[in-house]
Design a protein around this nucleic acid. Structure first.
Lengths: 138, 138
DNA sequence: TCTAAAAACAGGAATCATTCCTGTTTTTGG
DNA sequence: CCAAAAACAGGAATGATTCCTGTTTTTAGA
């Protein structure tokens, strides 16, 4: 009566051990270091299952690949348009998504995403916008 | 010295005339009613150009296709996980993205997205979650 | 513990939104 | 009016994600 298959367990652990909001391909590469025979399909299937179970979050930042987040506590994301890194930031105190939708809509989730240039990139003058090419940063 | 090619003009008009947050494919179909020879590549190229120029917004809600929004005034989006419709809602008064990021990060954009079940779907009991299959709703 | 049904898996093929390429047409600036 | 630059149409290529098939693992009941 185990709740997680070995594969799902590894995928969740990989995700919980990073705060880099990785793509499925990244999770796959990492998981293969632990389970060399795991397949990409299994990674996708389990990421979706974990999401449906509320164990992880999936987020789209507009770079044509989904990112995953092992941190399900409420927080917001800052996405640097220069280096593409996604980082976590706290929500303002008292922030309540349900209040934003009007009483007639039932709110089940919220995603607050800021775009900009991060501290590091601003310091280095890397303010070039990375175009949203299909080719993703792996 | 015209700012817009005929094609770009039509694409922008199509987008400004709806509040349905359409996909590129939808814009293409609509634009073809006006310019029967316009190509899909042209639609993508101009949508990206319009976005870069700040004339429109692009938004990812996690259904594997990008959506576009001709309304660039600040507002938030409500995405119904049952019917997949995206609707506009006002931001709370005084909402300032720049204050959320900490002084060291420069904020250039913000996207506040709520997920839930819309009034209509809740009324009809259509609360089934639409899986994020690659097949999109066109 | 044994066993049949159900669930999950690996591997690989298929899908399809998006981007890229090529040759042609349109626009721009002088 | 002319040459260079920009934009276009059409179609091929790309790549993230999903789907399919045969096999292995897990589950639950006897």
């Amino acid at each position: 009566m185990q709740k997680f298959s070995r594969q799902r367990e590894v995928i969740l652990r990989v995700l919980r051990e990073t705060d880099s909001h990785p793509t499925a391909a990244w999770v796959y590469a990492r998981a293969r270091q632990i389970l060399p025979h795991i397949s990409l399909g299994t990674v996708y299937r389990n990421l979706d299952r974990l999401r449906a179970d509320g164990e992880i979050l999936r987020l789209s930042v507009g770079d044509n690949t989904e990112h995953f987040d092992g941190n399900v506590a409420p927080h917001l994301h800052f996405c640097c348009t220069s280096c593409r890194r996604i980082s976590d930031l706290p929500l303002p105190p008292g922030f309540d998504p349900a209040l934003l939708a009007g009483a007639e809509n039932r709110v089940t989730g919220c995603q607050l995403l800021l775009y900009g240039v991060c501290r590091q990139c601003a310091a280095h003058g890397n303010e070039t916008e990375i175009q949203n090419k299909r080719r993703s940063i792996k």
